[in-house]
């Protein structure tokens, strides 16, 4: 199996020393993200997220199935992540790395278990028919921070996706094609966004050096990491810190506050991108404002 490339001593000492001076090789400071670019596909629910050189594709698809017998009112939602050698030669098909497990677990915790998607709204006929939603995440290029990018990709794709309209009359279920009835957006209760902090040990003053949005090089050199999932209202959905250097409560609080601040920016960026796509998509169509919504106005 191809190993991760060896990082030379020169790079290692330089990056670590520079971080102590709040300096990074790509010119950012420790608390800033790289530029995020969102591109939408022709279909609803297809999004391509780029963050520096990291690139992740997410695609939502839906089909009608029978619900689970123990959860008859709920639709289904699964997230599958796939890491192949396209992202990095160190990833192999059929042999998941540690990062693979962490990633799928974190997405599960952040998006599914935080009830971002109202699964009850996916029910068509109780105990008979429900929508089964599937989010496929593909990693095209790996330059660090896959977790945050994957989370942004899934949330954006869910917000972009439109479900075909279903009418039920008696026993008959009709799924209307997109051309016939305007499809409706999913009912998203909130948008959890992951923010990963990388720790690089303490500087001369005993302060923990923590950086946002680490590149692959920085990820290879860090001594610990922590992922906080938070939404724009400042509600923490989960905190994951598996191993690595010990972090004091004070640092954790500081990270959480910073994450809350960052998430507001990311959230706004996603809303703007979705809005722009909607305008683009409905050029020349004056009826688009009348598009259906499954959620109540709040």
């Amino acid at each position: 199996m191809p190993k991760e490339p060896e990082i030379s001593l020169t790079e290692k000492t330089f990056v670590l020393e520079a971080l102590k001076q709040n300096l990074r090789v790509d010119g950012r400071d420790l608390q800033s993200f790289r530029d995020i670019q969102l591109t939408f596909g022709d279909d609803y629910g297809f999004v391509d997220v780029r963050l520096g050189k990291t690139r992740v594709l997410a695609r939502i698809s839906a089909e009608v199935t029978r619900p689970r017998p123990d959860r008859q009112f709920e639709g289904m939602f699964t997230i599958t992540t796939e890491m192949g050698p396209m992202a990095s030669p160190a990833f192999e098909v059929g042999r998941p790395t540690e990062l693979d497990h962490t990633l799928s677990r974190l997405l599960e915790k952040s998006i599914r278990r935080s009830n971002a998607l109202d699964v009850e709204s996916l029910c068509i006929v109780t105990a008979q028919r429900v929508w089964s939603l599937r989010a496929d995440v593909h990693f095209l290029s790996h330059d660090g921070n896959l977790i945050d990018v994957a989370c942004i990709a899934v949330i954006t794709a869910l917000a972009h996706f439109r479900l075909p309209v279903v009418t039920v009359s008696g026993e008959d279920i009709t799924i209307h094609p997109v051309e016939e009835r305007v499809p409706v957006p999913l009912s998203l209760l909130h948008w959890p966004i992951c923010v990963t902090f990388s720790f690089f040990g303490e500087d001369e003053d005993g302060e923990m050096i923590c950086a946002l949005d680490a590149t692959a090089q920085e990820e290879a050199l860090r001594v610990g990491d922590m992922t906080i999932t938070i939404n724009k209202n400042g509600e923490v959905c989960q905190i994951a810190k598996s191993g690595g250097v010990a972090v004091e409560a004070e640092v954790l609080m500081r990270c959480a506050r910073l994450a809350a601040e960052k998430v507001k920016g990311v959230d706004k960026m996603i809303v703007d991108a979705l809005r722009e796509d909607e305008v683009q998509r409905n050029k020349g169509n004056l009826d688009w404002l009348k598009e259906g919504k499954s959620e109540n106005e709040r």
Binding site: T10, F14, E17, A18, Q21, L23, V25, G27
Partner: peptide, 19 residues
């Protein structure tokens, strides 16, 4: 490419220009 300069800030500048 190995780059050296008078300070880390300078080296980062050169590296960013190259990159």
């Amino acid at each position: 490419v190995w780059i050296d300069g008078s300070s880390q800030r300078d080296v980062v500048k050169v590296a960013r220009c190259f990159k």
